[in-house]
Amino acid sequence: MSMYVDMILGGVFHAAVVFLVAAGLQLVFGVQKIVNLACGSFYALGAYFGITAVAGAAAMGLPSVVVLPVLLAAGLAIGLIGLPVERLLRTVYRRDESHQLLLTFGLLLVFQDVMRFLWGPTPLTLDNAYLAYGTAEFAGVRVPTYNLLVIAASIAIAAGLGLFLQRTRTGRIIRATAENREMSEGLGVNSNRVFAAVFTVGCMLGTVGGALVVPASAASLEMSVELVVEAFAVVVIGGLGSMRGAMAGALIVGLIRAVAIMVLPEAEILSIYVVVIAVLILRPAGLFGKAMA
């Protein structure tokens, strides 16, 4: 029994992080119809900035238990970089999709060099922050408490985002703009503002994801490219533009990976992409996506 609990928790932890990046990708595509390849950069940026913020907090003498709030705040703060990036993206909103892809991919490479310049080329870690909250017993299994906190934070962010989009006036405006930009503009919506806000929130989801994962792993220049590939697997499975799809896709990817590692470790990557291919063949719009004409 404990074996399965361990396996599921490992899969859900992975899913919790991938979900945040994929959710950012989905949000931006859902509203702005841009496939943002730079989302992986925001994830890496969050990780690096998280390390800087925790180091700063430690230098100020703050106790190690503030690691999580510091990382959340750092992720949100560096996520504001979405504002200037969105201004840049405005130049290609009405251009061919290939221009948008090339620009966001270019941004990914630019960010990689910016991070190399600011934080150096070698992977950075937060040595002891991961153990700041100790360990917990969960269904008879010893789990790092930090993993449970990250899962909880990810669920809370997903729920908050859902409530924001469904229950608030701004959320309704965003959904209306996503549905029909011209119509919403005709009704007085400033779509530029909506796009700026949506892109920044999407960016923050990525940066918060990166900041949250860094105590358990490391910040490296490669993480941006690695995660963007996995985030796209999530998006394909869940359906492009769907937040529910992001959640379901992340869980599927995380759990399939965990099962494969337990049962047939060589199939860790293969298992995910078999599902991706199956979805593309059998349900091209993804589990929760809308079929496009």
Binding site: L9, G10, F13
Partner: peptide, 21 residues
């Protein structure tokens, strides 16, 4: 148990779960 994470894998929680099991 034999685990073969690819170089640079930074989330090893599932590999560790498999080793523990």
């Amino acid at each position: 148990a034999e685990q073969w994470p690819k170089v640079g894998t930074m989330d090893l929680t599932s590999h560790i779960a498999a080793l523990k099991a």
